[in-house]
């Protein structure tokens, strides 16, 4: 088991003929992911190293039976690409595109909610998702993810930051701890999938025994996750929040990462999570150490 994606997931890449789409799409296939097609309007009939390219998502789905999509197109085209995938019946959409206007994100999120409730969007501006040994969609380097062990215990990872997601994977791999699924939800103001969506799945997944949450300053997603954990999560967790030293009023790269009006501070988030019984590391390595202790006690 894993959450959201596994060995049966069939993936198409929207933007497969572009630089990023090609590079990461092929890497995903090399990892073992079932990359069954690509979509680039006007390039239908071509192929990228044996992966057939279609003119539309609908055509690709009809021909391949794909149920997931990996979107690697520029910001201007991303909203339309997400909605096209949803309209074609894609169940799981991963959008790595960085720099989508917040107005577009809000509109796409609410359109999905109302018109395509069966489509889950991961991202935008996220590294993607990996269920080690089964499926890797996005830009994560597959070799840094430890395979889950059949006997367990295995850890689920959910993270708001791209590179810190890799860091978390790496910390677990160094300690020989297996990973069930690692989800990078992205740092934008309106993520399609949030911490709670992932924690709910991890809590229900028999192959996941503990979770790591990687948050950052800005917004209230971590505080909301803490509330959810208090009443719904029984599996042990550790967490790390980036941005303890970030000055107020400065956007730290991510559109979402800003401390304003005393809200969204790292300390507030750490306190909320600690209050929910989550063990807090002061840096990613410490969060890994805490997880090693948690796993050893299982």
């Amino acid at each position: 088991m894993a959450i959201f994606v596994d060995q049966n997931t069939k993936v198409i890449v929207q933007g497969l003929t572009g630089g990023q789409g090609r590079y990461h799409g092929l890497r995903n296939r090399d990892y073992g992911t079932q990359v069954v097609g690509g979509v680039t309007p006007g390039k239908g009939g071509q192929d990228v190293e044996g992966i057939p390219v279609f003119n539309s998502v609908a055509e690709a789905v009809a021909a391949t039976g794909a149920d997931a999509s990996f979107i690697a197109v520029p910001p201007k085209a991303a909203s339309a690409a997400i909605l096209e995938a949803a309209a074609a019946g894609i169940r799981f959409v991963v959008c790595i595109t960085e720099g989508i206007p917040a107005q577009d994100e809000a509109l796409v999120y609410n359109t999905l909610l109302r018109r395509y409730p069966n489509t889950r969007l991961l991202g935008p501006n996220c590294p993607g998702i990996i269920s080690p040994g089964k499926c890797n969609i996005g830009i994560t380097a597959g070799e840094i993810a430890a395979l889950p062990s059949e006997s367990g215990p295995n850890v689920g990872i959910v993270s708001r930051s791209g590179t810190l997601t890799y860091q978390a994977l790496y910390e677990l791999k160094q300690r020989g701890i297996g990973v069930s699924t690692c989800v990078g939800i992205g740092g934008d103001p309106v993520p399609g999938t949030n911490f709670i969506d992932c924690l709910r799945e991890f809590q229900a997944d028999p192959e996941t025994h503990a979770m790591i949450l990687i948050g950052e300053i800005g917004g209230s997603a971590e505080e909301e996750a803490a509330e959810f954990i208090t009443s719904n999560v029984t599996k042990p967790m550790s967490a790390y929040i980036a941005g303890v030293t970030a000055p107020a009023g400065k956007k730290m790269g991510h559109a979402g990462a800003i401390v304003s009006g005393g809200k969204g501070t790292a300390k507030g988030k750490m306190d909320a999570l600690a209050g929910a019984g989550v063990r807090i590391g002061l840096n990613p390595t410490e969060a890994g150490d805490l997880m090693a202790e948690i796993v050893a006690a299982l």
Binding site: S161, V244, N283
Partner: peptide
């Protein structure tokens, strides 16, 4: 990455330094 950059600031701070920038 913004998260890693923020985390780098934090870790530098934890080991007794101060960052000149993000």
């Amino acid at each position: 990455g913004a998260g890693l950059a923020m985390s780098t600031l934090d870790v530098v701070n934890q080991v007794g330094g101060a960052a000149a920038n993000f």
